[in-house]
Design a protein around this nucleic acid. Structure first.
Length: 272
DNA sequence: ATGCCTTATTTCATAAGA
């Protein structure tokens, strides 16, 4: 079974490349982030022609996530219980669909696919460590931890994949000195990842296609990809039961090349 | 090294991304 996660930076802008990549890589389960469209406008028919069922969760211009599966797609969750919303102020914890409260952004979709509970996640950026968005980011991770903990039973087959917008270690950025004072590398953000790992989730670190670092994101600007000025922020966090099935994992750097790429590359994981 | 931002929208300018 092949599992993949990819921040496509607009599923509509990326549709030709997405379809081509699905046809080549032939993943069974795909977690997409930043679809940047609504649930209704997700190109479900196009991916269905390649044999995928779809669970999309999008609300417009920003954010948006989706799950594609050719091995079944059941018990779909749009968002998670306790997911905070962003209101431009330090976030409050709100319940999904509770009347009178702002709906959470479209940052999480879960489903059971081929015997595995799968989550496609797009963590808030955080913007700057001083911003309300950063507090929201930490709140979002705390709520995610609680929601995932509630799904973990004995020998759970669960994987949380996506753009976590956190580089787990200094080795996961091209130059740690450049990131001093920036989001994505602060101790509280890394603590948020550690708290997920404390649930029993393991970081499935992919093999880089080139060089020593399995970066997954390179800025569009200043030739960052050509210089390999990247970050590893797209992660696969798997329970031990899933991690024990991993037979290989890699970053598909080829998908970052050429005309009209996403600024992120897919992470591909093969399971026995 | 696979080219030196890109996206959607309240569009000819802006906000956001990380």
């Amino acid at each position: 079974m092949r599992l993949a996660t990819w921040n496509v930076n607009s599923v509509k802008a990326r549709l030709p490349r997405l379809l081509e990549w699905l046809d080549e890589a032939k993943p069974d389960i795909v977690c997409l982030q930043e679809i940047k469209t609504t649930t209704a406008l997700f190109p479900a028919e196009e991916v269905a022609e390649l044999g995928y069922e779809v669970a999309a969760h999008g609300d417009g211009r920003w954010n948006g996530v989706a799950l594609l599966s050719s091995v079944g797609l059941e018990n779909v969750s749009l968002g998670f219980l306790g997911e905070p919303s962003y209101e431009g102020e330090p976030a409050e914890l709100t319940l999904i669909d509770e009347p009178g409260l702002r709906k959470p952004e479209a940052r999480a979709v879960g489903a059971s696919c081929g015997g595995i509970r799968v989550w496609s996640l797009y963590a808030p950026n955080g913007r700057t460590p001083e911003s309300a968005h950063y507090a929201y980011k930490l709140d979002w991770f705390a709520a995610l931890r609680t929601a995932l903990a509630a799904e973990l039973g004995p020998e759970p087959q669960l994987v949380a994949c996506g753009d976590f917008n956190v580089a787990p270690t200094d080795d996961d950025v091209w130059d740690p000195a450049v990131f001093v004072g920036s989001t994505h590398v602060t101790p509280p953000e890394r603590q948020a990842l550690a708290a997920l790992r404390a649930l029993g989730l393991q970081d499935v670190v992919p093999t880089p296609m080139k060089g020593p670092h399995p970066f997954t994101y390179w800025d569009y600007r200043a030739g960052a990809f050509a210089k390999n000025y990247g970050m590893r922020i797209d992660l696969v966090y798997a329970t031990g039961a899933v991690a024990g099935r991993v037979r290989g994992a890699y970053v598909d750097r080829e998908a970052r090349k050429g005309k009209g790429p996403s600024d992120h590359a897919p992470v591909v994981v093969d399971l026995s």
